[in-house]
Design a protein around this nucleic acid. Structure first.
Length: 494
RNA sequence: GCCAAGGUGGCAGAGUCCGGCCUAACGCAGCGGCCUGCAGAGCCGCCCAUCGCCGGUUCAAAUCCGGCCCUUGGCUCCA
């Protein structure tokens, strides 16, 4: 069974064939660290993470690079803001720290490298010089621009025609550019007060002069353009054509288009084979974004819902489609995750009580396990269809519950394989953490106390004092402890 | 205006590339039943879909072709 993916470059489903049969070069277009990350960013990360995990599951070695853009007008504009830091680098460092914490909290597999723009200025300058030498770029007043008319394939990713864009172009813009859609590779000087004014988040007065860090270059002091960094960093850390380039749909044009142009113009080789774009996260009909101010931060979501619910939320829609964030969507994700987790725990509990040498066999559950693996793999290989894949897991949950419900004696082998399947597909591939329900926070004391209350409640129940028993259960529920009675005595979940 | 993606049950969301197994998956919500002192969880069953509209191709279309309407995103910083 082979993986097929939808390639933005060709707008078609294609069989996935990496340059090397064992290794996959994965580049994820990372974040500009000018603010806290929100759920829209985390959606890209999580889908890229699941791709990464699935490729590894299929035997590939994944070389994952994900950049941080730490040089940007928005960052420079916030320098000096309370609690963020005095200069551009300090502000970037501040947000990078929080973003990395978010990434860990989301249980993302680590990339091999997280390159930063500020540490790659020499490589960027080299790349720009190559483009100048080859005639794809020109200098103008200390800035350097890429000449889009020199690159024949310009527009191939977004299917835009330069002529058409020029026809409706920005004639009013007085500019140093030869063509309106030429883009900056290097910008002379620092960040202008006007740019700072646009991105300031507080009311401090804006003084004349230049903001942000600048670097020495053959064209004078200046700053790298936005698009060139990804080309320079991916070339530095990934050798040859990138196999999979992942990013949000909003980056197709101009960012990714420009990356292709400058990279392929410089090397003469294909920049990336498969371009996978994730659909945007929306709230109330518009995309979640920092500039619209309608965002829910990753750290806030992790705190409120927990990793597993957040990941399950993302896993209920394919990466390529847009997804809507809402309270009810999160509630559904919570229910889906609970269903999986409860089925897993029930299987584990049951399995613990069964003699491994038992001869009991339940063909239904055994078949269900096999089918789960088949359906899961088929779904994942079909353009990472995570919704279908998680359905397979939910069906296994049903099959497992049914076995526990219907059987007098349990099938040890089948339960064992059910548990392993949850751990392998739900855990390793989807990054969900089973069996961790009570591992968050310091629950050892809390757990003991809950047990104590439950003992008291059991005594009350034995005495037929249901009024008190229910009062205790309600009190625990209010504290976030779910109590469930069963034949084997009460159990609880936090 | 140009480019791209999408319109499927109360919600959400697969299936559309490669037409038939779709009398439309998984789930949430709702309604019955079993179980339970009760509740929850679980199990069983039910409910809600002429698959945006109109036309065409075909023995056969949610799936292919054409037209139209609507939504979202990009064309400016953006995941």
């Amino acid at each position: 069974m082979t993986l097929s993916v939808t390639n933005t470059l060709t707008r078609a489903r294609e069989e996935f064939r990496p340059g090397d049969e064992d290794d996959v070069l994965l580049y994820v277009c990372g974040l500009t660290v000018s603010d806290d990350a929100h759920l829209g960013h985390a959606r890209v990360w999580t889908h890229a993470d699941v791709m990464h995990r699935w490729l590894e599951h299929e035997g590939y070695t994944v070389h994952h690079v994900e950049n941080f853009t730490d040089v940007n007008e928005k960052i420079a504009a916030r320098a000096g803001e309370d609690a963020l830091g005095e200069d551009e680098a300090a502000v970037a460092e501040h947000f990078m720290t929080s973003v990395i914490r978010d990434m860990r909290g989301l249980n993302l597999k680590r990339a091999e490298v997280y390159p930063r723009v500020s540490e790659h200025v020499p490589e960027i300058i080299d790349l720009i010089e190559t483009l100048l030498e080859r005639g794809y770029a020109y200098e103008s007043n200390g800035s350097v621009y890429f000449d889009v008319t020199e690159f024949e394939d310009y527009g191939k990713l977004s299917n835009q025609q330069v002529e058409e864009m020029e026809a409706q172009g920005e004639a009013s813009e007085r500019s140093e550019k030869r063509n309106p859609f030429d883009f900056a590779l290097w910008k002379a000087g620092g960040v202008s007060p006007a740019d700072v004014a646009e991105h300031r988040k507080d009311d401090r007065p804006i003084e004349d002069g230049e903001y942000g860090e600048t670097w020495e270059s053959p064209w004078g002091e200046g700053r790298p353009g936005w698009h060139i960094e990804c080309s320079a960093m991916s070339m530095t850390h990934l050798d040859g054509t990138i196999d999979i380039h992942v990013g949000g749909h909003d980056l197709v044009f101009p960012h990714h288009e420009n990356e292709i142009a400058q990279s392929e113009a410089a090397t003469g080789e294909q920049f990336a084979r498969y371009w996978l774009h994730t659909g945007l996260l929306e709230t109330k009909g518009e995309k979640m974004s920092s500039s619209l101010g309608n965002f829910f931060t990753v750290s806030g979501a992790l705190e409120e819902f927990g990793v597993n619910v957040v990941r399950t939320f993302y896993l209920s829609t394919e990466y390529g489609s847009k997804q809507t964030f809402s309270e009810s969507a999160m509630q559904e994700a919570e229910e889906r995750w609970s269903r999986l987790e409860r089925a897993y725990e029930a299987a584990v509990d049951a399995c613990d009580g069964v003699d491994a040498r038992t001869k009991v066999e339940d063909a239904d559950l055994r078949d269900a396990v096999d089918e789960t693996h088949e359906q899961f793999a088929e779904a994942m290989n079909d353009d990472f269809n995570v919704r279908e894949a998680i359905s397979a897991l939910l069906e296994l949950a049903s099959a497992s519950n049914r076995h526990l419900e219907d059987s007098v004696e349990y099938d040890y082998q089948a339960l064992r394989r059910t548990i392993e399947t949850f751990e392998e597909l739900g855990g390793d591939v989807f990054g969900l953490t089973f069996g961790d329900a009570s591992a968050e926070g310091d629950v050892s004391l809390a757990g003991d106390l809950v047990e104590l209350v439950l003992d008291v409640r059991e005594d009350a129940r034995d005495d037929g004092n249901y009024e008190q028993a229910d009062a205790l259960r309600d009190a625990l529920t209010d504290l976030g402890v779910e109590v469930e009675d069963s034949d084997d005595g009460p159990s609880y979940r936090l």
